[in-house]
Simulated scan of single mutants.
Amino acid sequence: MINIRGAGPGNEAGSTPPRSPIARIGAALRGEGMHTRGLSSPLVTAGAIAAILASVIFFWSWRSGLDAGASNPTWFAGYVDVTVSPPYAFEQASTPSTKDVVLAFIVASPDRPCAASWGTGYSLDEAGRVLGLDKRIAALRSKGGSASVSFGGALNTELASSCQDESQLRVAYRDVVERYDPAFIEFDLEDANLLDEAAGQRRAKAIAALQGDRGTSGKKLGVWMTLPVTPRGLTDPGITAINQMLEAGVDLAGVNIMTMNYGASRSGSQTMSDAATAAADATHDQLGILYQRAGINLSSEQAWKKLGVTPMIGRNDLPGEFFDQDAARNLKDYALNRGIQRLSMWSLNRDVPCAPGANSDAASHICSGLDQGNTRFSELLGGALPGRMG
């Protein structure tokens, strides 16, 4: 088990740990944390009742989410880099394993810090006009497919890092959710976006509020976090990001780990397949600890159902790292054996061999860098899986 003692906010010596939903109910019954000065007894009682009801609703929605996750079998959804040219025709849903997609990436507009854009190149309206994105999502759904939306990525600025106003940030997230009605949203947090703890606090508060708004109207909003790992599990900034979400009351569907670009953290004797499974084993243990700190005791099965694994197929960005077809087969077998919730891959755009004469020394946005013949990584990872993205 990875030792993550002291990681994340709110864990300094002498600080008060975050309360679980059950603890919040008890506190409300006792009147703790309520500012009652100058209020009459009936008003205090009404406030306590409202707090109790809100806590009960929150707890049972959170608990039912854990129970639902435990029964949902492993599913696959590949990423689609929306702004790469030539575009990947995800709307064709040509095979069962490509019917569910994660569209990437929503980031801050370069000239409007609280406005969402696709890869800084297209506003939401421009993506509809120029890329035909809205119509393509509708076409995918008409074929029985499903789309989710990813915020962040490695190259640009995630909205919470750019937008300093929490209310405007909440509106920006809401605009994306209401426009695309995604199966879930996720936050791919890397580099500066992951290290910005103030942004993490804004993000967590905005998403908790948005989940609450959606819940009030009878709509569920699934939220995933996609984070970097080493073979030893989540990094300290990743642990902090999860803590921030849980402490804000966000109901996380799961944590998706990026099993790629390990660099020096992977030993020379460790294959990419071994590194991926080691990272997943360690993250499973870390999630158990993080949820326990938040007042939720996950069973081992529930912890696996809170986990997703995403390799970068073919040539990775760092020298000497290749995720090949055997690694894909091994990872799928491992995921099914453990009962992992989600498998993904970066990316469907890359799931073809490179053309003859292409640069073989760098990872490409549009091909894998491996001689994969007619075999597709999407089939190796996602073929015949029992679950569906949701």
Score class of each variant (00 low, 15 high):
Leu290Gly: 01
Gln292Ala: 15
Gln292Lys: 15
Gln292Ser: 14
Gln292Asn: 13
Ala294Leu: 13
Ala294Cys: 12
Ala294Ile: 06
Gly295Ile: 11
Gly295Lys: 15
Ile296His: 14
Ile296Met: 14
Ile296Cys: 09
Asn297Gln: 14
Leu298Lys: 10
Leu298Arg: 10
Ser299Trp: 12
Ser299Pro: 09
Ser299Gly: 14
Ser299Val: 09
Ser299Gln: 12
Ser300Arg: 13
Glu301Met: 12
Gln302Ser: 09
Gln302Lys: 13
Gln302Asp: 11
Ala303Arg: 05
Trp304Thr: 00
Trp304Asp: 00
Lys305Glu: 05
Lys305Asn: 10
Lys305Val: 02
Lys306Ala: 11
Lys306Arg: 15
Leu307Cys: 10
Gly308Cys: 05
Gly308Asp: 03
Gly308Met: 04
Val309Leu: 15
Val309Met: 15
Thr310His: 03
Thr310Glu: 09
Pro311Arg: 01
Pro311Tyr: 01
Pro311Ser: 02
Met312Leu: 12
Met312Gln: 12
Ile313Asp: 03
Ile313Lys: 10
Ile313His: 06
Ile313Glu: 04
Ile313Trp: 08
Gly314Met: 08
Gly314Ser: 07
Asn316Glu: 09
Leu318Pro: 00
Leu318Ser: 05
Pro319Trp: 04
Pro319Phe: 02
Gly320Lys: 02
Glu321Val: 05
Glu321Met: 08
Glu321Tyr: 05
Phe322Val: 11
Phe322Arg: 12
Gln325Tyr: 12
Ala328Arg: 00
Leu331Phe: 01
Lys332Met: 04
Asp333Cys: 00
Tyr334Ser: 04
Tyr334Ile: 06
Ala335Tyr: 09
Ala335Gly: 03
Ala335Trp: 07
Ala335Thr: 04
Asn337Cys: 00
Gly339His: 14
Gly339Gln: 12
Gly339Trp: 15
Ile340Gln: 01
Ile340Gly: 02
Gln341Arg: 15
Gln341Glu: 15
Gln341Ala: 15
Gln341Phe: 11
Arg342His: 13
Arg342Ala: 07
Arg342Cys: 04
Arg342Ser: 06
Leu343Ala: 10
Leu343Gln: 09
Met345Ile: 03
Met345Gln: 12
Trp346Cys: 04
